[in-house]
Every structure is written in structure tokens, then in C-alpha cells.
């Protein structure tokens, strides 16, 4: 053994073989069915899954049929085992994926969700409008003013109680966006409750715990304690919640304003990779620039320094670039 250079001290990784759609697939032991599907080059829809967060397997859009299991299993969280037999394209799987997409599409505003979300809706022929004469989003209530305690029924829903359903339309999570600070906004009309922001704010990245999941059932929601504005909460404005949000429910104020004004245009944006100028950690930044202005800052999720996460300076401290 060489005493110079790098010596791996990791335990040797065993490879196991499982069966995906009738084909043998070799994956590392300890990985998931989702990894096996990727290895087999099978496109698996995912919404609540993120490579840099602990799987919560809440959205259930990645379910697959596992031989011997009574119900479908989430590919993102279920560990791959030698000899497993998995099917990803059965009628049962397609039905569940389609209905999950219809459930979300009919209750949540997916207009700013990822491109792949819209592709999956098309692939699975999901028709969110089938649950109500007009299941499209009603016009959102006016935005709650900065600093004011946001008040909306969803924020104060009582667990175990709900109003009798209105048969003329399908229930949605529509509510006013929360604009309570200078840096980012929260529009929970677009929230699919994937738990990613809570994980990123908590144990998985920032350890700030400014937000949690509150309420229960369809009234479950992301909230600060007693719905206080972010400015009264533990928030440190790292923006890591924005970084992991898959639907645009959390957004830079710059992006929110430009979208409202109709000036947001990703085709006119240039993404420049650089290193954060502030401290010695050396986080990788991606500056999204439109019309010579930085409109958003991200970091790649697969970056070994950041895992996609930044702090307030790297995320929001860029106005000096324009010498303003």
C-alpha cells in the first residue's frame, strides 16, 4: 500500500443485482430503487425527492410495483435489495402516478413548477380538471402587506374540522402570498408540501428551524410559530428553502416582482459560475443575470462545497456588483 497520496478508508462497496422491468440491474448496496431505475435509464417522476436532502417519500409520485409487496413502494426511499423484482410501467403504477399528479394539479398552482413536472403531467395524461367544473386556480387573494401578521383561513385551520365541501368546485390551497421581508416571498398557493424547505431550514442544512409543518390533513401547511412574519421568526435569510423549492412557492423578491411585471424571461438570462467573494469557504455560485442585473443566485446541488446550500451573503449580498 502506498503511504503517499490518498487511501480510501471507506468500506468496500458491494454491488447487488435486482430486476427492473424484466432487466437485471447492478447497483451499489445501500442505494435505492430510484438509483436502480436511473441506472436502467428509466425516467422516474419525483417531486419531494432531492439528492441533497433526506427522502421524506411524501409525494408518492415515484411509486413502483415491488413483487411480494401488498402496496406500491416509493422508489426514492426504498432501499434496493438483491433479488428484488420491480416494475415501473404497470397499469397500477401509471394509475397512481397519474392520480397523484391530478391531485396536485387540481389543488395547487403548478404554473411555476419545474419543466419536468409539466412533462410528467403530459406523459401520464393527467387531467386535473376532472375533479371540478373549473378546477383551475381562482384568482389569488391580495398579498398580505409587509410586516402585518398574515391572516388567512388556511393559516388558522383547526385540526379535525373543516367546512362542508362546496360542490361547485374542487378545493384548492389558494391563499395570499406572504410578502413580509425584503429578500424573498412565500406563495403557499404553490406549495405541494414536499417538506424540502423544512428539511433545508432544519437538520439537513441550516439548523435554524424557522419553519415547520403545521396543521393536519389538507390543511397541513408550512408555518412559523403562530404564523409570525419571517422578520419575527428565527429565519436567517440563507434562502436555502428557495434553493430546494420545486414549485416556485418560495422565490427571490426580484423574481417575484419581475414575474408580476411580466419582465421575467429565462431565455434572456445568462448563468455565470463563480466563487463567492465573502469568506474563505469558497462556495460555488451561479449568478442568473438578465439585462445586466443579477436576478437570482443559486448553487449547484451536486457541488461538493455547498451541496446547493448558501448563506445570506452568498445568496442575497450581490447589490454591490452593480455598484449600488
Amino acid at each position: 500500500m502506498s503511504t503517499q497520496g490518498y487511501v480510501s478508508v471507506d468500506a468496500p462497496v458491494r454491488m447487488i443485482t435486482m430486476d427492473v422491468d424484466g432487466r437485471p440491474v447492478k447497483v451499489r448496496e445501500g442505494t435505492t430503487i430510484l438509483e436502480a431505475c436511473k441506472t436502467a435509464e428509466i425516467d422516474t417522476p419525483t417531486l419531494c425527492y432531492a439528492s441533497n436532502l433526506t427522502p421524506v417519500n411524501a409525494c408518492r409520485v415515484c411509486v413502483v410495483e415491488l413483487e411480494g409487496a401488498r402496496v406500491l413502494v416509493p422508489a426514492c426511499a426504498r432501499k434496493a435489495e438483491a433479488g428484488m423484482k420491480v416494475k415501473t410501467d404497470t397499469e397500477r403504477v401509471r394509475h397512481s402516478r397519474r392520480l397523484v399528479l391530478e391531485f396536485l394539479g387540481s389543488s395547487v398552482d403548478l404554473s411555476t413548477a419545474s419543466k419536468s413536472t409539466h412533462e410528467w403531467i403530459a406523459t401520464y395524461e393527467a387531467n386535473p380538471a376532472r375533479f371540478g367544473a373549473d378546477a383551475s386556480m381562482p384568482p389569488p387573494p391580495a398579498a398580505s402587506a409587509a410586516g402585518e401578521t398574515a391572516s388567512h383561513d388556511r393559516d388558522h385551520a383547526e385540526p379535525g374540522h373543516h367546512a362542508s365541501p362546496d360542490v361547485s368546485s374542487a378545493a384548492t390551497v389558494a391563499q395570499a402570498p406572504k410578502l413580509d421581508n425584503d429578500l424573498y416571498m412565500r406563495d403557499y398557493s404553490k406549495c405541494i408540501l414536499c417538506y424540502k424547505c423544512v428539511e433545508a431550514c432544519g437538520d439537513d442544512a441550516q439548523n435554524t428551524f424557522a419553519i415547520g409543518v403545521a396543521g393536519r390533513g389538507f390543511d397541513a401547511r408550512i408555518s412559523t410559530e403562530f404564523v409570525v412574519p419571517l422578520t419575527d421568526s428565527a429565519c436567517v435569510y440563507c434562502g436555502n428553502c428557495i434553493g430546494v423549492c420545486p414549485t416556485g412557492a418560495l422565490m427571490f423578491n426580484t423574481e417575484y416582482r419581475m414575474r408580476k411585471d411580466g419582465t421575467w424571461d429565462e431565455s434572456k438570462q445568462k448563468v455565470t459560475s463563480t466563487i463567492c467573494p465573502y469568506c474563505g469557504v469558497g462556495c460555488d455560485l451561479e449568478l442568473h443575470v438578465q439585462a445586466n442585473e443579477i436576478v437570482k443566485v443559486t448553487s449547484p446541488a451536486d457541488n461538493s462545497v455547498t451541496s446547493g446550500h448558501l448563506c445570506i451573503k452568498g445568496r442575497f449580498g450581490f447589490s454591490f456588483v452593480g455598484n449600488k
Binding site: 421524506v56 417519500n57 411524501a58 409525494c59 408518492r60 409520485v61 397512481s96 392520480l99 397523484v100 391531485f103 396536485l104 385540526p159 379535525g160 374540522h161 373543516h162 405541494i192 408540501l193 409543518v213 396543521g215 393536519r216 390533513g217 389538507f218 390543511d219 397541513a220
Partner: peptide, 10 residues
């Protein structure tokens, strides 16, 4: 509807 914990979409 009242007793669902709200964690999973289905």
C-alpha cells in the same frame, strides 16, 4: 378528510 395527517398526497 379530518383525520388524514396530510403527509402523503394520495
Amino acid at each position: 378528510r379530518d383525520e388524514s395527517c396530510g403527509q402523503c398526497v394520495p
